[in-house]
Computed example of a mutant assay.
Amino acid sequence: MSRVTKAWALLIVLSAASTAFAASGLGGAALVLPVLLLAGLKAHVILRDYLGLAVAPAWLRGFDLGLAFLMLTFAGLALAA
């Protein structure tokens, strides 16, 4: 199984988990925080495997840092609301 196929399968699993959280009836921060985490993981997989940043680890770390900052900002806003 190729790396892209494994990434695709992981994205399907992460999307299913997001759907399960959305259908669970949770609301507020209890819903937003796990869905944000799953979205961040999906973004990392896309950057690493589909955009090919696995061969450029410094770029991947930079994007991951920016993504982590964005996710923390959104999490802080969700907790403040």
Rank of each mutant, 00 (worst) to 15 (best):
A81L: 10
L14S: 02
L47R: 05
T19P: 00
Y50M: 09
D64F: 04
L14Q: 00
T73R: 13
G40N: 10
V4S: 11
T5W: 02
T19A: 14
L37T: 12
G52H: 08
V45K: 04
M71R: 05
A43W: 04
R61D: 14
L36D: 06
L47M: 14
R48F: 11
G76I: 10
A75M: 07
A7N: 01
G27M: 06
G28K: 07
A39C: 10
V55K: 15
A68T: 14
L65Q: 05
A68R: 11
A20V: 08
S18R: 05
L38K: 00
A7L: 06
L67C: 05
K6I: 10
W8R: 03
F63N: 03
I12Y: 00
S24L: 06
L14W: 00
L51W: 15
L77A: 12
Y50T: 01
L31P: 02
W59E: 11
L36S: 08
D49H: 15
G66H: 09
A56L: 15
L33G: 01
G40A: 12
A16T: 11
G52Y: 10
A7M: 05
G62H: 06
L14V: 03
A54T: 07
S2Y: 02
V32D: 09
T19V: 13
S15F: 04
L14N: 01
G62M: 08
A29K: 06
G40Y: 10
A80M: 09
A17M: 14
L10K: 02
Y50Q: 04
V13I: 15
A30M: 13
W8G: 01
G28V: 10
V13F: 05
M71G: 01
S24D: 09
A68C: 10
M1P: 12
S2A: 08
G40M: 13
A7H: 02
H44I: 05
S24Y: 11
L37W: 04
A54L: 07
R3F: 02
L36C: 03
L72A: 14
H44S: 12
L38M: 03
T19S: 07
R48C: 10
A9V: 06
G66T: 09
P57M: 13
T73P: 00
L38T: 01
A7D: 04
S2W: 06
L77Q: 09
A54K: 12
A81E: 08
A39W: 02
I46R: 04
V32T: 11
A78F: 04
L31K: 02
D64C: 10
V32M: 07
